[in-house]
Nucleic acid binder design. Structure first.
Length: 538
RNA sequence: GUCCGGUUCGUCUAGGGGUUAGGACACCGCCCUUUCACGGCGGCAACACGGGUUCAAAUCCCGUACCGGAUACCA
């Protein structure tokens, strides 16, 4: 039998990172087993479900690369089937009508109300004391015919237990006495979650249900429904939860946008990096590897590697440097600097375009460097070093400023210190535009601390002009170094003072690659212009 | 309350009778360097507690504590 799994979110908000991990594990399991990964939108709670949420979920799944193999199922479309199933169980005497008037909903604190009620019962509550449980068929039919409202409850036996072998948690057993006669159909005819899920999973021929640990007790209820319906039950596996720092469940309401997948997309994370990070939350292949391609994850995934303990999604609210999990940030940076350049470039292009930093010239086909990069074998993943070590890529003369090759070389140069795609348009803005900001800290540290620089740097610009302006010498690292060193000696100052001052003026920031390379990449013309500019000083 | 589950460095984790308890992130130090959040080297740092079984327990058993989940005519 081919494996069929499903991800079944309810569209009551954006896609949650915990839910995304459930989707990922379902997907990995399906791919590993050569099965199908399906998507069902559980939109039966009309009051809370929105189309916008559905769109957002779909968008999130598309971004992270977890698209379903078959058409999306909307649970609300199956309500008639759910009602028919309830009716069938009623007719077979496996369920009964409960004419108890519906209790007023206590929306303020539903959870607390449930807890209080349970505590009041002191654990000796009889789950079978419903007065309508043994009502005669005649009377039940008569009252229903008279128009009296009723809910339909499953008649759960008093003696016995449900049990199943959980793919993660092992053998799970629960005495029937612990399970109440659960409601299948609300008195307004609305099918309830557990019934809907079971009917749909049967209908969709789901073989393996993989979902959050918060559904463990639902599983016992659902098994009762499978049995009543005479249907074969699927395999079940429950995943540990992802918790917030402090150990509470990571929730949209309390923790905000940090739990939304779109936050990471918008913050410049690579889907591959995010997926990699998520896979390692609650799962391990039992080895010391950290970076896994999707194919590797599929190859190595197994439910046996899933933990039973919850993982904490670690971050510090209010700390800009740790706004999300450290390891996630590191992993994204690791992907940016080590992934094949040809794979990174399209993402950088999108980022630059969105900030009006992209030039059509970057798209032009042609030169040697570009074709070298494009032919890079993208299966190899340690490629940053490979590219850097490849003499034909790095030894080329500097491409014309603003050309496609220049863009490729620049991206490869600056990516080594970047954490997100946003950095290409933020910290890296000065490479692509004249309109960039100066980091006040960089100005203070590298310029104001050495007031002489205010006239020295324009002077250096003149030296560059004199040395390279007529084109007789190439503006490259070796020659630039000669000029700067001579200038430094003349001023009897340290090389670092000149270099760091120039860095602040040329790039607006205090960090970056070797300054000699930066001069070269920025180019003679822009270097002269920026060294002479006084805007940073004002 | 009851049921279910959990507890190895700050965090993610490896290890499941004999290990100097390993790795990653973060942090700290040193090196490289004109700077740097790259890179290299090194450091700090953990088996919740109490009993038992055993020659030997982080590992098996029992108990305790703490944490989490569930307990709806929500999903």
């Amino acid at each position: 039998m081919t494996v069929r799994v499903r991800f079944a979110p309810s569209p009551t908000g954006y896609l949650h990172v915990g839910a995304t991990r459930s989707a990922l594990f379902n997907y990995l399991y399906a791919r590993k087993k050569g099965g199908k990964f399906l998507l069902r939108i559980e939109d039966t709670d009309l009051a809370r479900s929105t189309d916008e949420s559905t769109r957002s979920i779909l968008e999130g799944l598309a971004w992270i690369g977890l698209e379903p193999d078959e058409a999306i199922v909307f649970q609300s479309n199956n309500a008639d089937k759910h009602r028919a199933a309830a009716k069938q169980l009623l007719d077979e005497g496996k369920a009964y009508r409960d004419f108890t008037p519906k209790a007023a909903p206590n929306n303020a604190n539903v959870k607390d109300a449930i807890k209080d009620r349970a505590r009041a019962a002191q654990g000796v509550k009889n789950m079978r004391d419903n007065e309508y449980r043994e009502l005669s068929k005649e009377e039940s039919d008569a009252r229903a015919a008279a128009g009296e409202p009723f809910a339909i409850r499953l008649k759960v036996s008093e003696i016995g237990k449900t049990s199943f072998e959980d793919g993660v948690f092992g053998l799970q057993e629960r005495q029937y006495a612990e399970t109440e006669d659960l409601v299948l159909l609300r008195s307004d005819g609305h099918p309830l979650y557990n019934l809907a899920v079971v009917c749909d999973d049967i209908e969709m021929e789901i073989t393996d249900v993989i979902r959050g640990q918060d559904h463990l007790t639902n599983t016992h209820k659902q098994i009762l429904i499978y049995e009543a319906l005479g249907a074969a039950k699927p395999n079940f596996a429950h995943l540990p939860l992802i918790l917030a720092p402090g150990g509470k469940k990571l929730s949209k309401r309390i923790h905000g946008e940090i739990v939304s997948l779109t936050t990471y997309r918008d913050a410049g994370f690579l889907a591959a990096a995010f997926r990699n990070f998520l896979a390692l939350m609650g799962w391990s292949a039992g080895e010391e590897q950290e970076i896994y391609s999707l194919d590797e994850l599929i190859g190595k995934f197994s439910l046996a590697g899933v933990h039973r303990s919850s993982a904490i999604f670690n971050y510090e609210p209010g700390n800009p440097k740790r706004w999300t999990d450290d390891k996630l940030i590191w992993m994204n940076a690791e992907y940016i600097r080590t992934m094949p350049l040809a794979q990174l470039l399209p993402f950088v292009k999108t980022e630059l375009k969105a900030n009006k930093l992209w030039r059509d010239e970057y798209d032009e086909e042609g030169a040697a460097l570009t074709s070298t990069i494009d032919s890079t074998d993208s299966q190899a993943f340690q490629s940053h070093t490979e590219i850097a070590d490849r003499p034909e890529a790095i030894a080329l003369d500097l491409p014309e400023i603003g050309s496609r090759d220049w863009n490729v070389k620049t991206v490869d140069l600056i990516r080594t210190r970047f954490f997100t795609l946003k950095d290409f348009s933020g910290q890296g803005r000065a490479y692509f535009s004249e309109d960039f900001d100066f980091d006040p800290a960089a100005v203070d540290k590298n310029l104001r601390k050495f007031p002489d620089l205010q006239h020295w740097l324009p002077e250096l610009a003149d030296r560059f002009e004199a040395a390279f302006g007529d084109g007789s010498r190439v503006f490259n690292e070796v020659n630039i170094e000669d000029v700067v060193k001579a200038f430094t000696e003349e001023k009897t100052t340290k090389l670092g003072v000149i270099m760091n001052g120039a860095r602040a003026l040329l790039t607006g920031v205090a960090v970056g690659p070797s300054m000699l390379t930066v001069f070269e990449i920025i180019g003679l013309e822009r270097t002269i212009m920026r060294l002479k500019s006084q805007v940073a000083w004002n």
